[in-house]
Nucleic acid binder design. Structure first.
Length: 500
RNA sequence: GGUCGGUUGGCCGAGUGGUUAGGCAGAGGUCUGCAAAACCUCGUACAGCGGUUCGAAUCCGCUAUCGACCUCCA
């Protein structure tokens, strides 16, 4: 069975067989959020995507050191008119708080949201402000290596020189050196201190009113945004590690510059595989904080948005995300979420049915047995094919039909061995919980003992009515419960209930 | 304007030279006191035009259209 992991490497633009630097171990770095406002759903998608990558690598038996940073300084506003203010410093000024209060508040919010989405915590979550000395050191090394220059207390990376010396600048984002050179003549006059428009700051001299500032050999200032990732990935994963992930919108300039910095320090690229998650769309356009086209997770969970007809639970949203490939754009719509909710429930119901299923004994490995084993194998192959969750999910849904047929009697246990049933149980459990990171939301339990007890009493009374063929009472109970959004399902072994 | 990527049945969304993706919705049927659930069957989709090929949704070209990046973004 071929089941070796292949990943799409954004750097080469090809799907490649994944080979870790150290056997059995994986070093993975993912760009985390800048904590200057609440996380929106687009952010969540990226972290869910890499959460599945993290989980699957572990499932395959790799020991993974997963580093995901928190950006809490250095990320400048892009708008020229505002004078390139640090995002966190700006928020602090507007809200009259310490920058670190801003950072703490939104970092807490971010962590809560990751928990809600059942995103596993990384092994290390370093913060940029916690690595100022290391960043100063790296700036010095880049200066020593002749790939940066000082201007009025700020330090800039010399992309022009780097591009001429090493033919790598622009590879990741598909930019051409010739364009950079052409750009220099046209736009140079607009650049204040930089020698070249594509040069970027690795240390920035702080304006007098700037709140976040540290001493350095060049000025009292703060580090450039791109630098932290080079510093922290190198510190915790080494000069060369396996996987670097992030949203596709970070390819340029962030990741391109990160690569440049690593060359500036170590003379080599930081990692072997670049993985980029694609954007979550909302109304057909990229969900983005800065242009206001976004929906907050909270609005989804409460259903309080003009774009939604109802509330959706976190796991429904997670399932919705898993239904597309991480490298494809995904368009969020109310209709699609409704479909996802039904699908998620169907999957989880089948899981429950399966868990309670016992083999009737005997059973031979016939066609059904082979088919089920084939689908189980297929699900793994799907995941090993660049973490193709929608394909793996499709394989699981084929198995859902088998499970329900076994329960309903359309298929017989005599056609599969007890071992296969056990394997099926284990696979479902592993995929749904360990790999997909879904949680079982109790639709047939309120989490409240009193309510569950009352429900049981009601269903018992209804059963008595049904035994007496008192359909009027039976239907009255069912209809009344339906009004309360509780659905009663009559099965062979009595009735069950679930919340709307 | 430059660069890149989409365009798949009613909706979402995989696939990528010949063989069923899957989910949701819809139609018919089985089961059931009825219903729900479940199971079975069904639609014969790949933006348009041209080309390559025995054969293309899948490769090539052109056109249309949407989007992303080029400036902060996950």
């Amino acid at each position: 069975m071929k089941n070796e992991l292949q990943v799409f490497n954004s750097y080469s633009g090809k799907k490649e067989v994944f080979k870790p630097i150290h056997e059995g171990q994986v070093g993975m770095y993912v760009c985390g959020p800048t904590v200057y406002s609440d996380v929106h759903l687009g952010n969540c998608r990226t972290f869910v995507s890499f959460d599945v990558v993290y989980r699957y690598l572990q499932y395959l038996g790799y020991k993974v050191r997963y580093v995901r940073n928190i950006t809490d300084v250095g990320h400048l506003e892009g708008d020229e008119d505002t004078g390139r203010e640090d995002k966190i410093a700006k928020k602090a000024r507007l809200e009259q708080l310490e920058p670190m209060e801003i950072v703490q508040r939104y970092m807490n919010g971010f962590h809560e949201m990751m928990k809600v989405f059942n995103v596993a915590a990384p092994a290390i979550e370093p913060r940029a402000t916690g690595h100022i000395p290391e960043q100063i050191e790296m700036v010095q090394t880049i200066l020593d290596n002749g790939l940066a220059y000082v201007k009025n207390g700020s330090v800039y990376f010399d992309t022009f020189k780097f591009a001429k010396e090493k033919n790598v600048y622009g590879t990741l984002s598909g930019r051409k050196i010739e364009d950079l050179i052409a750009e220099s003549r046209a736009n140079l006059k607009n650049q204040d201190e930089k020698n070249h428009p594509s040069d970027f700051a690795i240390w920035i001299k702080a304006a007098p009113e700037h709140l976040m500032r540290w001493n350095s050999p060049w000025s009292v200032g703060f580090p450039g945004w791109h630098l932290e990732c080079s510093v922290m990935s190198t510190k915790y994963l080494g000069e060369k590690f396996d996987i670097h992930g992030g949203g596709s919108d970070l390819k340029f300039p962030h990741h391109e510059n990160e690569i440049a910095q690593n060359y500036g320090v170590c003379g080599a690229a930081p990692c072997n595989y670049w993985l980029h998650g694609n954007m979550l769309l909302f109304n057909g356009k990229k969900m983005s904080k800065s242009d206001g086209n976004s929906i907050m997770p909270g609005e989804l969970f409460t259903g309080q948005s003009s774009h939604l007809t109802k509330a959706y639970s976190p796991m429904v949203v997670r399932f919705f995300m898993l239904q597309s490939h991480y490298s494809s754009t995904l368009d969020l719509t109310d209709e699609a979420l409704q479909a996802a909710e039904k699908g998620y429930r169907r999957l989880m119901e089948a899981l429950k049915v399966l868990q309670e299923m016992t083999h009737t004994g005997g059973g031979s490995a016939g066609a059904l047995d082979k088919e089920i084993n084939g689908l189980i194998d297929l699900a793994s192959e799907d995941m090993s094919d660049d973490f193709n969750t929608p394909k793996a999910l499709a394989s699981l849904f084929e198995l859902v039909t088998k499970i329900n047929s076994l329960k309903g009697g359309q298929l017989s246990f005599s056609d599969l061995t007890p071992d296969t049933l056990e394997r099926l149980k284990k696979t479902f459990n592993d995929f749904i919980f360990d790999i997909f990171g879904l949680l079982a939301e109790n639709f047939d339990s309120s989490g409240n003992g009193v309510v569950d007890g009352l429900m049981q009493l009601i269903l018992d009374m209804r059963q008595t009515a049904r035994t007496n063929k008192d359909w009027g009472t039976s239907d009255k109970i069912r209809d009344a419960l339906k009004e309360l959004e509780i659905v009663v399902k009559d099965g062979k072994d009595g009735a069950t209930w679930s919340k709307g």
